[in-house]
Simulated assay, not measured.
Amino acid sequence: MSVYGETRTTSTAPVGTALAHFLLQAAGLAVKAARAIERRRALNQLGQMEDHMLRDIGLTRSDVRDAASEPLWRDATQVLVTRSVERRVAARLRARPGRMG
């Protein structure tokens, strides 16, 4: 035995769907804003460190300044990661014995 039901949609269903979409977008933006604020705080703390402390983690004062000059919607800490990795790789290449070939 099969039972076929009737599906009814209300006239407010599209409004509810649009509202849910809007709220999800707003929540996503709020999360992104909170992450940006957190990263800027970390950047501010790095800016307050002394030069020798920055050197210990592979950064310079100009790296911190360059990262701080990034627009707010970009992840400024990515600049710091890139610079630190570049310096580490360059130091390893300088430390390698000369290759023959």
Rank of each mutant, 00 (worst) to 15 (best):
T60M: 02
R74T: 03
Y4T: 11
L59E: 04
H52C: 01
V64T: 00
R74W: 07
R40A: 10
A76L: 01
L54D: 03
A13L: 12
T7N: 02
D63W: 03
T60K: 07
I37G: 08
G58N: 05
A33W: 11
R96S: 10
L80H: 04
Q25L: 05
A68Y: 02
R96C: 13
R40V: 05
D66K: 06
D56A: 12
G98S: 14
R94H: 05
D75Y: 02
L72N: 02
R87C: 04
E86R: 07
V31C: 04
L19C: 00
D51M: 04
S62D: 15
A34H: 14
R65F: 03
T77D: 07
Q48T: 11
A20L: 09
Q45Y: 10
R39C: 03
A42G: 15
S62I: 08
Q25F: 05
V64I: 06
T82V: 08
A20D: 14
P71K: 05
A30Q: 07
D63S: 05
Q48E: 15
A42Y: 10
G5C: 12
A26D: 03
L46P: 05
L80G: 01
R65P: 00
A34F: 05
F22K: 04
V31K: 08
T60R: 02
D63N: 12
W73A: 02
V85H: 10
A34I: 09
R74D: 01
N44V: 11
P14V: 07
D66T: 12
V81R: 13
M49T: 06
S62G: 02
R87T: 10
T12H: 04
A33M: 05
E50Q: 15
I37N: 13
I37D: 15
Q78W: 06
L29G: 12
R87N: 10
D63V: 04
A42D: 14
L80R: 00
A34N: 10
V31N: 06
S62T: 09
P71G: 03
D75M: 01
R35K: 14
D51K: 12
G28D: 15
L59C: 06
T12K: 09
R8S: 06
L24F: 04
R41H: 15
A13K: 02
D63H: 07
I57K: 01
D51T: 12
L29A: 12
V31E: 12
R55G: 06
Y4D: 15
I57C: 10
Q45M: 11
L93A: 12
I57H: 03
S84F: 01
A30V: 09
V31Q: 05
G28K: 02
S2T: 13
M1F: 05
D75W: 00
L29E: 14
A95W: 07
S11R: 13
R92Q: 14
D75A: 00
V15D: 13
L23K: 14
R83I: 01
R99F: 06
L29H: 03
D66I: 02
V85W: 06
L72M: 07
W73L: 03
A68P: 03
R35P: 01
T17G: 09
